[in-house]
Structure formats: C-alpha cells, structure tokens
Design a protein around this nucleic acid. Sequence first.
DNA 1: TATGAATGAGGCTTCATTCAT
DNA 2: GATGAATGAAGCCTCATTCAT
Lengths: 199, 199, 199, 199
Amino acid sequence: MALEKLDTELRKDQIVEAALSLIAAHGVRRLSMAALARRVGLAPSALYRHFRSKQAIVQAAIRLVAKRAKESMREVQSVTPNSLSRLELLLGWIIRMIRELEAMPRIVFSEGMATEHPEVKRQAYEVLTSVLQGIEEIIREGQERGEIRGDFDAKSLAVMFWGMIPASVILWHVSDEEFDVTRQAQKSWELFRDGIRAR
Amino acid sequence: MALEKLDTELRKDQIVEAALSLIAAHGVRRLSMAALARRVGLAPSALYRHFRSKQAIVQAAIRLVAKRAKESMREVQSVTPNSLSRLELLLGWIIRMIRELEAMPRIVFSEGMATEHPEVKRQAYEVLTSVLQGIEEIIREGQERGEIRGDFDAKSLAVMFWGMIPASVILWHVSDEEFDVTRQAQKSWELFRDGIRAR
Amino acid sequence: MALEKLDTELRKDQIVEAALSLIAAHGVRRLSMAALARRVGLAPSALYRHFRSKQAIVQAAIRLVAKRAKESMREVQSVTPNSLSRLELLLGWIIRMIRELEAMPRIVFSEGMATEHPEVKRQAYEVLTSVLQGIEEIIREGQERGEIRGDFDAKSLAVMFWGMIPASVILWHVSDEEFDVTRQAQKSWELFRDGIRAR
Amino acid sequence: MALEKLDTELRKDQIVEAALSLIAAHGVRRLSMAALARRVGLAPSALYRHFRSKQAIVQAAIRLVAKRAKESMREVQSVTPNSLSRLELLLGWIIRMIRELEAMPRIVFSEGMATEHPEVKRQAYEVLTSVLQGIEEIIREGQERGEIRGDFDAKSLAVMFWGMIPASVILWHVSDEEFDVTRQAQKSWELFRDGIRAR
DNA sequence: TATGAATGAGGCTTCATTCAT
DNA sequence: GATGAATGAAGCCTCATTCAT
C-alpha cells in the first residue's frame, strides 16, 4: 500500500467518502474497518488516527449526506422561484441520489448502530427534520404565492412529498435495483402535483 | 432455564413471534440465536430442533408478517364496501402494526441477510408486491364505483398510499418512537383522501 | 423372552452393519448418531437402547471386521492346501473387501476415538495381530512343505505380505478411488511370490 | 499468555510445526484452533492473522512434510551412489520420521478434511506420488547399474518398498507406540533387499 | 421399545480495537 | 502518520447424550 502520509483533514474526507460508498453498496455491516481501510489504502489500525471509532465514521458519513442534501436544497431554490418546479427539481435530485440515499436506511435501521449508539439515530433524525423543513418551506411559499392549494396543511404535504423518497428507495432496493424509479417518480409526482395545485 | 418441553408447532410459533419482536426492537443482526433462545427460555442449540438456521427463522418471520397483512386485507374488505373507508381502515391497521412492520425494513436493509441470502429479499419483495396489489384493487374498485377520481392511475395511487407506511415507520423509528404517528397518519390520510375523492 | 432377545440382536447387527458402511463411506466422524439412526430407520435416541455409546458401536464394528477376516482365513484354508495359492486367494479377498477395510484406518486414525478410548485401539491391535498370525501360519506351513524359502523369517514375511493391504487401501483412497488396486495387487503379488518361492 | 509479538514468518513456522505435532498426536480433528493456539501461546483469533483457515494450516503442514521428504531424498542421494544403500538410508529416515509421518494418514483419512476439502486430499496425493517416484528412480538406477534384479518392474518394487511405511506407521500407532519399528523395519528391509538384489 | 425435545460442550470464524514499534 | 501482531467478545452451528413420555 502507498505509505503516503496525508493530512488529517484530507484523509478524513477520503475515509468518510469511502465509508459512504461502502455503506450504500453493502450496508453498515459490511463497512468493516478492514474493508474501509483497504478501500482507502491504509492498515485498519491507521483509521484510528483519524476517527475514534467506527461509530464516529458513520456519524461523519451521515453528516456528509446532510451537507449534500442542504446544498441541493439551496441549489434548487436558486434555479426557479416557482414552488412546483422546485419540488420537481428536488425530486429529480433525489432520484439521482438514490444510490447514496440508500445508505441512510441502512444506517438508520442497521442494528447495533441505532440501538447501541443513540447519537447516530438522533443525528439521522436531525437530517431528516431539516429536509422536511426545507420542503415545508417551499410548499408554504407556494401557498403564499397561490401556486399550491392553501387549504392543505403545509407540514403534512411536506411529509407526503418526502414520503416518496423512502418508498422509491425501498422499491428500488427490494426489486434488486430493477424497479424503474424514474418512471415511477414521474407518475407519482404528477399525481401529487395535480392534487395540490391551486385551481 | 425452564425445562418445559413443548410441541414443535407451538415452539415454532413462539420462536417466530419472539424473533419478530426482537428484530423489530433491535434489528436482524441483534437477533442472535443466543438472544432469541434466551427470550424463549431455551438453550441456543435447542432452536435448531425447530429451525434449520437463523435464516429460516427470519424467513418464517417474514411469512408471519405477510400472513397478518393478508388477514387484515381480507378483514378490511369484509367490514365495508366503501373503498375510501377501506383505505382508512387499512391505514389504521398499519399504524397499529407499526412496531411489527418495523421489522421489515430491518430485514430488508440488513446486510448479510439480504446480500448473502437473496431468498429473503425476494420473499420480502413478494410480500410487498402482494400488499401493493391489494391496495391497487381497492382503489380500482373505488374508481369503478365512482368513489375515487378515475383520471388517476390506480397503480400510482397505490404506490403513493403504500408509501405512507415506510414514511411513518421511519419517522416513528428515527424519532425514538416519540413521533405521533397516529396524528400524522390522520392528517396525511385526509390529504390523500381529499386529493383522490371523486367530486 | 427369547424372541425379544433375538429382536435386540437383530437390531444390533443391523446397526453395526450400517455403522460399518457409513464409516467406510464417510469416516468415523460422519458416523453421527443421527446419520446412523436415519440409516437404520430409528430416532437417534433409540440407538441408546442397544448400545451404551457411539464408542460401543464402533467397537462392535471392529469386531465385525475381525469376524469376517477370520472367516475368510478359514475359508481360504479350506480351498487349497498350497500356501502360495492360499496367500493369493487371501489377497484377492482383501482387494474385494477394500472398501470395507477402508473403515479400519478411518477408525484407527480417527481422532477422539483412539485417543479418548484406548479400548478401541487395543481392539484394533488384536484384530491386526490375529490377521498377522494367520498369515504367518500359512507361510510357516509353506516353509515346512518346501513351497516357500525357508531362510526367510516367517513373521517378517507375514508383515510384508500384510503390508500390501494398507498400501493398497491408501493408494486407492488417496487417488479418489481411481487407482487400479487389482492390477497393482497382481503385480505386487507376483513380485512377492517370485521373491519367496522356494527354488 | 505471553504477549510476544513475532514476525509472521516465524509465527507461521511455529504454528505449522505445532499443528503437525498435534495432528500426529491426536489427529486432525483434535487439531482445534483453540488447542493449536494454546500450544503456540496465542489467542485463537490470532491464528487468523497468519492463516486464513484451519484448512490452510493443514495444507501448510502437508507441505512441510513434503518438503522434509524431498530434502531427505536429496540427502540420501548425496551420501552414496549405491542404490541399495540409498534405500536403506531412506528407510532409516522414514523410521525416524515416523511420528511426523503419522500425521499423514490422519490427515488423509480424516473425514471432514478429505471430504469437504478435496484440495487437501489432492495435495496429499501429490506428496505421495512424488515420494513414490523418488523411490522408483533410485530402483531404476540400481537396475541400470546391475545392483538390483532387472527382471522386476521398478514401479511395483517402488510401491512395495514404500508400502513398508504405512505398514510400520500402523503397527507402531496401533500398538500404542510400543511396537519396535526399528527392528521390524530392519528385518523387512533385509527381506526386501535379499529379494531384489541382483545375483 | 421408541420418540422427540432439550442440553452443553465444543468447533470455526469475524471484527472492532489496542499497543508497541 | 502508519503498521502489523495480538486480543476478546461475540456469532452461528454440530453433535453425543439425557430424559420424560
């Protein structure tokens, strides 16, 4: 292996990135310190220079997903002022990220992690909450601008919209990745849009 | 340990029931044969009298969930002919079963299980599919009877409705079981109902 | 009473026979009480009615081989008075029994058995000794009748002759039963015969 | 435990050596990873740093025996050009190695090993074959130099000579190591020598 | 006589983690 | 900063054997 000594920050990023991709591909359990180390080109014990434990790495991975989610949120808002378009863009982004997002249920529902380390769960909760709030905001703005029916509860709409994500992830995952998420999302989106659009 | 000798059928049920609850509580991985045995009051090796392997137990657990789902479906249909009422009843059942249903994503997203034993995944897929079909049927009937808007694709509606399940499970799970699923479901349901109800 | 006793005897024979064939086919280790019971059509626990332990069954199996060996010895002697012919016949019998004889090294070299139960080893020793003596006797008679060179030590010759058995068994076994034992034995025998024949 | 950290190569040798002696003493089955680890002064799991599995250790043990056999073969050839002397030396070596050689039948006839891991059996077959060929070569040279009767088939003679090994091992093993192998071998050897010596 | 449930010891292996170098 | 040997806990599973029926 390359006995290259890298700056901690760089290494950390590298490790977390690798962890995320390993989790998405095989789940938290397969995220063995050995596998992770191999991926990064280090000895397993070297990981402990950069993170206190496996748990810490998982938490960092969650944080990375959160960061990306927020960035996307911001991006979406910068492209168009129309709330429906924003939601559609958001959905598109989600579908594209589906592989990475798969890491989330794996982390959240993975045993050991959530049970033994409540912080991980709490952190996931925060990510989720912030995403939900972002969506809710978009919806609320849409209602204010008369683009979305005002007689619907914005929060509930947000949950419903967000609900398309896990649904898609599950269908995609369980069907051995053969399920056509894009098409399904498109149809669901149309349904949702037609349902909430102000008349 | 209570050296009580039980008939295989009884023990099997007992074991599967215990497994389901353990999975729901801590995940498949924590479903160690040791923990399961302890729960049932047996020596770990005794489990092998009744099941060939851990995998077999997990599969039996899935089958149990499937069975319960089907029973509920049938029950729901026997209570009322109105499709919207049926869906509402179904949602109620789901919420009540949420703890048990939590076992499903745990099984499906559990690495080791899904990766090493594809049958488990396929089985989960079948359960999911059958539930989806049941919902779709109810919706289609509702459309035929003019209770549900006919201009919506029944399949997509079914996916959307079903999507409330994972969404609720996740929110409930991630919030450390403090999230008020019932209220959330109620609101989501109203949204959904108002959106699809024929005018 | 008598019938009952006979019944037990029958069962015992049946069990030992099955044990021997299982050992020959898969080794002592594969001679699990479960496999043996299945072969005989009983529940594993039922075996304990007829034998005190697995060890006892193995010992009985050795005894059976010993009995057969003795019978063959006697048979051989009844067919021809010529010592060289006798040896040749004996070798032929051995080759035919090779599959069954394979059970012997398996028993003798099988761990647990020999180490933990010295009786088994002693018993095997006795069987071997009696076979060796039988061969020695034939040779000695041949020497007395002037058929075999008298300047060779009968005992050593017996060991050499007997040595062809394990050699053949091993070659046959290790070559995945593709080694042509018959041909090899024939050639070895000719060598041996030409070497010891009185001139 | 002595927490002495050793270089892998050293440890590997140490482990294989220990394995060989354990196999010889109690058989492959008794070669439990636990027993082996204890012998070497390590935790069982530490063995997996140096070998992938128990099977790998057994294979290494076979390789060690093979290596020693080849060395002896070469040594024997360097000492004397006379083929009969060579064979006698070889026999002497065999007798001295008898304890170690005992490991071979144990490995070969050990169920589980041979049945479940055919490579082990094949490997043992190769060792055996190479030894047989070495002997055959010595004999053939002896025939060419007129030291050994040329009317005998070299291959068959080789098998016969080699056959003294298992015979001795068995007698020694079964007699609880009290059988005087050296004397027996001496006498057998004289017989063999007198039988094959060119006149 | 026979069964079937239950046991307990033992077997192989994985993995996060520590520590001296 | 990085390595590699070592650990200990945990995990799944097999099997001879016992015991109540």
